[in-house]
Design a protein around this nucleic acid. Structure first.
Lengths: 176, 176
DNA sequence: ACGGGCATGTAACTGGTTACATGATTCA
DNA sequence: TGAATCATGTAACCAGTTACATGCCCGT
């Protein structure tokens, strides 16, 4: 539901046309989340189908506007907090859980490999060139924040892997 | 790609039938990731279509086995590390980025709301009853690890929200 | 004249997800 | 007998994603 809500959000200030939404979406997200133009149009069709946007055509120029229902939906989205029930299925989690089923040895192997990869990722991010200090546009800020998120997430994953190892060791002690 | 790889992984030790895979999947993931049985069969059909599993029928009992290609695919999955390029589109990130576009005030409001929700989530998890110490089955361990992941992730999100606020304040100082 | 960016779309496919139908077996 | 669980499936839909086709306009 990311593209959907993103477009809805971009339409809030006023009418936009398809191509414009693509460029705005990429600009707002710092250029790190690219969007195939085609997807904008398919998503707009679906939003229109659901009555959340309205298309008007003037002089060959199509233009999309939020409907009242669309505005309501958007408001709800702003208020909402991402649900954690059921817990989102995450690839790293799934991999470790499946590995545990195959035995502690297998699990430790997977944990080690993932940890190495995450360390490398962190290292890369720390070596990443700082954005030019003379142009702190919204786009640069966005890119920076996405990088931050990646780093913080990676650190969290590392901590979680440590926890996994600890709990595995503990259960091993319980039933040797 | 979670269910797909999950089933593949469960088929590694040997042949299984559909319903069995559902129960095993739920058991391995500590019962927190429930799976509609129907999805097992649709996924198995698609795995068969892709030549990763083979179905054999004996005395009315259908049974699925990994093919060589399936084994290869699974091996690749074990080796792989989740890609972070392009960065995964995350709801929280998207929401904050879109909010920033609408102005610092809007962004701070969103950040505050999300922070509150995350604090509440952490609080709930800390009050969660500890698993019975006398039954440390694999399933309990799995459930525990999923909870751990949720907590660690929430803490990471909180740290990221703090970073967002700090960076917003900094850019505000730059261009008042 | 031509290439590149602007602009609009469509067809096709992917995996995830649910609702529903069907029948067998088990056990109270 | 009747409810619960086991067991197998199908039809339908959803959003995400890509590849492709089309044409316009502008600057070189």
């Amino acid at each position: 539901m990311a593209v959907r809500e993103g477009l809805l959000s971009l339409l809030e200030p006023g009418p936009r046309y398809g191509y414009q939404l693509k460029t705005e979406f990429e600009s707002v997200t710092g250029g790190v989340w690219s969007l195939n133009v085609g997807q904008v149009y398919t998503t707009l069709d679906r939003l229109e189908r659901d009555g959340l946007v309205e298309m008007t055509e003037a002089e060959g120029q199509k233009s999309y506007t939020l409907t009242a229902a669309g505005r309501e939906e958007l408001g709800a989205w702003w208020q909402a907090v991402p649900a954690d029930e059921p817990p989102p299925r995450d690839e790293l989690m799934l991999k470790v859980l499946m590995a545990i089923e195959k035995g502690a040895d297998h699990a430790l192997e997977v944990i080690t490999r993932q940890r190495t990869a995450l360390f490398a990722l962190l290292h890369d991010h720390r070596r990443k060139p700082a954005p030019p200090a003379d142009a702190p546009t919204v786009s640069v800020l966005a890119a920076q924040l996405v990088t931050d998120a990646l780093v913080v997430r990676a650190e969290a994953d590392l901590r979680w892997l440590d926890l996994c190892e600890a709990r595995l060791a503990a259960t091993r002690k319980d039933r040797p």
